[in-house]
């Protein structure tokens, strides 16, 4: 069958396909066969992935398979739990069943992070304007996702909240526009400028605190095969109430920090080195500190202008 957008299908049909393991998500460079019996996974998927393309059959060749379900038969019924199973042994923590969306998103991250070798993966949020990209490096508490979501409101398209996906043969980034993961206070911030409809219901009390997801927009999904050239690499530092500040980072230092957060750089090997070095040839690298979201967006926009992009 030809691919259709999730939003054009009845929730019941998506649920049946998920239960039977016949639902294939085609997003960016990856196809993922999803399986789940959880109604919560179905509801979440129909909402947050509504603009994404899927096929409903089992004869599709896919990059990854992901099952999201109870860790065992007992936990399907008694104090039910849910856990992502990416098809290889991974010691993922079972979550209470109502945290199904988190289990799905964790599973989606795992499948790509640990099984993709066709691209060099870095842990970073990526947005782009006119196919020139800004990479926002991950750093615990740094505010990667909040800044990524804020840049979406400032007229940038979303490539990914989680992975900068670099081609091996040339320094361009491949989009993988999945929902942006928001934590704690940043949920209110993003909801205030993106609107209630753009953000999922909240999951309270997860291992990472309160979590909600911001949907990738239709335009982001439609541009999912349109690569972007990385121009700017940002290491964000959020401290409440702090005055905005910018520090330039030596490309070599920036490269080492970025590589340290790559799940597959060593495995891809020489091609990863070549492509990463080519990327850094035309990449401006900065650390920014800020105390509120408006400041961070302004800093990034100014630096983006300076790159001449």
């Amino acid at each position: 069958m030809t691919a259709v957008r999730v939003g054009t299908l009845a929730t019941r049909r998506v649920g049946a396909a998920l239960a039977a393991g016949r639902l294939n998500l085609h997003l960016g460079p990856f196809s993922t066969a999803l399986q789940s019996h959880s109604a919560k996974v179905t509801r979440y998927f129909c909402d947050l992935y509504r603009d994404c393309l899927v096929t409903l059959n089992e004869d599709e060749i896919v990059d990854y398979t992901l099952r999201v379900g109870a860790p065992n038969l007992l936990r399907r019924f008694v104090r039910p739990q849910i856990v992502p199973d990416p098809g290889f042994h991974f010691p993922a923590l079972p979550l209470p069943a109502h945290m199904a969306p988190l289990a799905l998103e964790m599973g989606m991250n795992l499948t790509a992070a640990l099984q993709c070798f066709r691209f060099v993966m870095f842990h970073a949020g990526v947005v782009a304007k006119n196919d020139n990209a800004v990479m926002i490096a991950a750093h615990s508490g740094g505010g990667k996702s909040t800044l990524t979501a804020a840049m979406m409101e400032a007229g940038y398209r979303l490539l990914s909240d989680e992975f900068a996906i670099l081609h091996r043969s040339r320094p361009v980034l491949q989009p993988y526009p999945r929902p942006v993961s928001l934590k704690n206070a940043s949920i209110d911030v993003v909801q205030a400028f993106a609107g209630n409809d753009a953000v999922s219901t909240r999951l309270e009390g997860t291992p990472k605190g309160t979590i909600a997801y911001r949907r990738a927009r239709r335009a982001d999904v439609e541009a999912m095969n349109q690569v972007a050239v990385p121009k700017l690499l940002i290491f964000p530092h959020f401290t409440d109430g702090r005055q905005p500040g910018v520090t330039q980072v030596e490309p070599a230092d920036a490269a080492m920090r970025l590589v340290a957060g790559s799940p597959n750089y060593q495995v891809v090997g020489e091609a990863a080195f070549e492509s990463t070095m080519a990327m850094f040839d035309s990449l401006a690298c900065y650390e920014i500190s800020y105390g509120n979201t408006e400041d961070s967006v302004r800093l990034v926009e100014d630096l983006f202008q300076e790159t001449g992009a």
Binding site: P29, V62, D63, F117, R118, Q266, V267, V268, G269
Partner: peptide
């Protein structure tokens, strides 16, 4: 097509194991 992607991905992985 997708078959090429899947096999190429596996080749890169096993080349690493060999190295």
């Amino acid at each position: 097509g997708k078959l090429k992607d899947v096999l190429e991905n596996a080749r890169i992985r096993s080349a690493h194991d060999r190295r």
